[in-house]
Design a protein around this nucleic acid. Structure first.
Lengths: 144, 144
DNA sequence: ATGGGGCTTCCAACGGTAGGAAGGTCAAGG
DNA sequence: CCTTGACCTTCCTACCGTTGGAAGCCCCAT
């Protein structure tokens, strides 16, 4: 199977297949006499595995570990689970960060009239965060 | 004020200040005779503005637009609000994506014993997604 | 004047992905 | 046999934002 077919079958672009080979995530495949990469079903399975893991947000390094566990028939499922739990925690951290951004911005946007007048709490907050009730006379833009 | 002081005062690293200058996000500052960058209070305010906007997840290009609005005293607050709302939508999209990853993985991890035995639904799911109830005989790792 | 810290510029790396250029190969149809 | 077009090869570039380092200059204190 050529790289184009393998890409189609696995859902990993040919570009990325070459990249994964380059960084040693996958083994170097066999080559035809002309130098074309040839992929077996098993290799396409590996690529699909990688794609699904990426879809779950695993980093390439995490996938490297997952692949090692996958190939190790005598692995302990606790090792896999630990990796997954760690990743879930990472995801939740990022979710919390994004959520805090969205909430903060949502709060500011809610207090913004959104009309044709210039007054805008969003810009004011960026210019200087609100401290208590008083608006300190700071945060004027330059060249204004 | 030297770049180091400006970095300290604004919370933007000296490296990033130079980068922002390089990409034209901020104006080129005055220089001392020796070529050192000199920053005014107003310029530090701009840097703080940028830092806060980055903390809210705005991209550099979005910040470019925000800065333009900030400097435009006759802006319409609706323009700022539209930008913010768009960004909130982007954040919510990313949150939803991450949440789906976390939920999927959480579901898999919940079904994983996490003991010293090799059986593991997480790896099985990566090897081949579950279709209905039947487990197709696919997704074996290579060289196994 | 010597040392240490700050400043300057320039170059590279990170993680993943995508785009393109220049050239070789394969299969089909004339 | 030859052409055409789709595919493959390698190599270089860019994206985004941030960090690190090297080599060299500048400023201040001892």
């Amino acid at each position: 199977m050529n790289i184009g077919r393998a890409a189609e079958a696995s859902g990993v672009s040919a570009k990325m297949i070459r990249y994964y080979e380059d960084i040693g995530l996958i083994e170097k495949p066999a080559r035809t006499a002309a130098g074309y990469r040839r992929y077996s079903e098993a290799e396409v399975n590996t690529l699909s595995f990688i794609r699904r893991a990426r879809n779950l947000g695993f980093s390439v390094e995490e996938i490297r570990a997952l692949l090692a566990l996958w190939r190790d028939r005598s692995r302990a499922s606790s090792d896999v689970k630990a990796l997954a739990m760690k990743h879930i925690a990472d995801l939740n951290t990022r979710i919390a960060e994004l959520k805090e951004m969205a909430d903060t911005l949502d709060h500011l946007a809610r207090n913004c009239h959104g009309d044709d007048r210039p007054h805008c709490p969003i810009l004011e907050s960026l210019a200087a965060p609100v401290i208590g009730e008083t608006q300190p006379r700071e945060g004027q833009p330059p060249e204004a």
